[in-house]
Design a protein around this nucleic acid. Structure first.
Length: 411
RNA sequence: GUGGCUUUAGCUCAGUCGGCAGAGCAUCGGGUUGUGGUCCCGAGGGUCGUGGGUUCGAGCCCCACAAGCCACCCCA
């Protein structure tokens, strides 16, 4: 038996309807905020990610699906989509287009991690990037938009966390100060933290080991090390959010796993998700284009929603709303072609219709019942009857009456 | 990459002391003329995760592996 490979899964009905719901809500809101869809390839040159996401990150160093192409080149299934979007922006000289480029995408990403709740090797992201401005106003709008998307999808009880991670000018100063301080206390911390001091000192701030928390409290905060322009920028983002009545928590210890982030970073968490409680992550990446070798700057801010996790939390609320409206039951074989014509006419108006093969009345009603039909049209050799499957009520109608009844429904 | 738990019909799960593979639900068929859901009868569906080992005999005991779930790690 061949099965879906580890960490991948089939999305079957009725769950697929929830996915469609979430995606159509997102598209509607993207449109309202004047974002346009971009579709980039599923695989890219490996160098795009090693240079964009960062050689030392977990994603690049141990989670990528990288393979050799037949001509010897190295290709990688995209583990995230910000670097590809920026690649596309540069390649197509979108900096020459007027104004901000506001782009969104929906699609699968690939990371070879050990699967668990809310974590898959092929997972889906709904994301957006606003490229071409450093203005904190763009940050605020992006954050507002994502809150709108999550709320409209049916998510409630989530928390918005924000932070600023500074820029290439002030962050190294902070990291140096952090390292300095950690030299003294690291020996008293957990094994992972001792390792992080070398590999990625910022991650120490994110450690969840209870015994380490008192020490972490005493470590320096990035917010005290922001230079003047980063500080002004962060203050503006917070003020704009306040003015829009968007509540958030400043979490100075919020760090991100991708190297390209600068200044604003944010995350949305939800309690029902288990250990993988983050439903969205995002931030600003003013230097990403240059690190990909671009001569033109492309400062931007973006986010991506973990669609699998979002669907998981809203799944119960959206059960089977789109029922089968009409089940057409040809009881007399000679009326089948007439049934087919009626079915097509009604279907053209957008009504959900099932046309059964000719059969015995009892069998057909059983099928209609199992299909969850609202109404069943019984087609006899000389007349038509419409049966309400809930109440059992039945009335004789003409052909025209039936067609009218079901075609005006969804015009 | 590390750890814990789990794996028997499509689904949920029983299976005693090692002795013929089971139930409920679901599916399909029947209960005679044109009426579904409830009810009654019947049928199909299994390499007991895979591969070894112990034994006269293994779903059950032992070993290895795989997959699933959860947690670490990390992230969305």
């Amino acid at each position: 038996m061949i099965r879906a490979v580890k960490g991948t899964r089939d999305i079957l009905p009725p769950a697929s309807a929830v996915w469609n719901h979430v995606e159509s809500v997102a598209r509607r809101i993207f449109r309202a905020y004047n974002y346009h869809e971009i579709r980039t390839p599923i695989f890219e040159e490996t160098a795009l990610f090693t240079r964009g996401v960062g050689e030392e990150t977990d994603i690049v160093s141990k989670e990528m699906y990288t393979f050799e192409d037949r001509d010897g080149g190295s290709l990688t299934l995209r583990p995230e989509n910000t670097a590809p979007v920026i690649r596309s922006y540069i390649e197509h000289r979108m900096d020459q287009l007027p104004g901000l480029q506001k782009l969104y995408y929906i699609g699968p990403m690939f990371r070879r991690e050990r699967p668990q709740k809310g974590r898959y090797r092929q997972f889906f992201q709904i994301g957006a990037e606003a490229i071409g401005s450093e203005s904190p106003a763009v940050d605020a709008e992006a954050i507002e938009m994502v809150v709108e998307i999550l709320t409209a999808s049916g998510l409630d009880g989530f928390g918005l966390l924000i932070n600023s991670v500074g820029c290439p000018e002030c962050r190294p100063v902070f990291i140096a100060a952090l390292r300095e301080r950690l030299k003294d206390v690291a020996s008293t911390m957990c094994r992972d933290c001792q390792r992080r001091v070398e590999t990625n000192p910022l991650r120490v701030l994110d450690c969840k080991v209870p015994e380490d928390q008192p020490i972490i409290e005493t470590l320096p905060s990035i917010l005290d090390y922001l230079n003047e322009s980063c500080k002004v920028h962060f203050e503006a983002v917070k003020r704009y959010l306040d003015e829009r009545n968007i509540s958030y928590t400043v979490k100075p210890r919020l760090v991100r796993g991708l190297d390209y982030y600068t200044r604003t970073t944010f995350e949305i968490v939800h309690g029902s998700l288990g250990a993988q409680n983050s439903v969205l992550g995002g931030g600003r990446y003013d230097g990403l284009a240059e690190s990909l070798g671009s001569k033109v700057r492309a400062p931007g801010i973006g986010f991506s929603i973990g669609e699998d996790r979002l669907v998981m939390t809203v799944e119960e609320k959206h059960a089977a709303v789109d029922r089968l409206s009409l089940f057409i039951a040809p009881i007399d074989e000679s009326k089948f072609s007439d049934c087919a014509l009626m079915a097509r006419e009604i279907r053209r108006s957008g009504t959900r219709v099932e046309l059964a093969a000719p059969g015995k009345l009892k069998k057909l009603l059983e099928q209609a019942n199992k299909a969850g039909a609202v109404d069943a049209m019984l087609v006899f050799d000389d007349h038509y009857e419409l049966k309400n499957m809930e109440t059992g009520e039945q009335q004789t109608l003409t052909r025209q009456e039936l067609v009218d009844k079901f075609t005006c429904k969804k015009l």
